[in-house]
Simulated scan of single mutants.
Amino acid sequence: MVVREVLDADAADRVFGALADPTRRDIVSRVLDRPASVTALAERYAMSFAAVQRHVAVLERAGLVTKEAHGRERLVRGDVARLRAASQVLDRYEQVWRHRVRRMDEMLTEPQPPPATAPPGPAPRRRSPSHPRPQSQPHQEDTP
């Protein structure tokens, strides 16, 4: 089973890289509920306005948020479609792994054939203690 990406590799890298940071995940969840200005977002975090701006810029490059002018402010809005695309990528990976686990389970529960036995035939010959093993004769070169 092959995973066909909903996002191309570069877009997926940007999306999942952006979501790797807890502050950016929090920003996305906030602006999905209600658009907010960067100024309003910055008030909620113990970091500088410039740091929040950089987080928003990373999210914007990943396509997770958009900024649009609203009077003198620029409002940040979450992009639900981009999050759905990321979710679809993860869903496809989950399908691949579920298929693999199901196949391993099938393999482990398949009845196993009995172990192969040796075909019937003559038993191996064993020397009896009454017939001692012959001693090797010394070679002529070994004798004085």
Rank of each mutant, 00 (worst) to 15 (best):
M1R: 01
V2P: 01
V3L: 07
V3G: 03
V6C: 09
L7S: 06
D8G: 11
D10L: 05
A11E: 10
A12F: 13
V15K: 05
F16S: 15
A18L: 15
A18C: 15
L19I: 06
D21N: 14
D21W: 09
P22N: 03
T23C: 00
T23F: 07
T23L: 00
R24T: 08
R25K: 13
R25S: 05
V31L: 00
D33C: 03
A40E: 14
A40I: 00
L41P: 11
A42T: 04
R44C: 01
M47T: 09
M47N: 05
M47P: 00
S48G: 15
A50Q: 12
R54V: 04
H55L: 07
A57F: 05
R61I: 00
R61V: 01
T66R: 15
T66I: 09
G71K: 04
G71C: 13
R72V: 10
L75I: 02
V80F: 01
R82V: 10
L83P: 07
R84D: 06
A86V: 10
S87R: 11
Q88K: 10
Q88H: 04
L90K: 03
L90I: 12
R92A: 12
Y93Q: 05
Q95W: 03
W97P: 04
R98P: 02
R98Q: 04
H99R: 10
H99G: 14
R100K: 13
V101H: 14
V101C: 11
R103S: 13
R103Y: 04
D105A: 12
P111Q: 08
Q112D: 08
P114C: 02
P115N: 07
A116T: 02
T117Q: 12
T117Y: 04
A118V: 11
A118Y: 11
P119R: 08
G121V: 15
G121N: 15
P122W: 12
A123L: 14
A123F: 07
R126N: 11
R127H: 02
R127K: 11
S128P: 05
P129D: 09
H131P: 00
P132Y: 01
P132T: 04
Q135A: 04
S136I: 10
S136L: 14
Q137G: 14
P138I: 03
D142H: 03
T143W: 00
P144N: 12
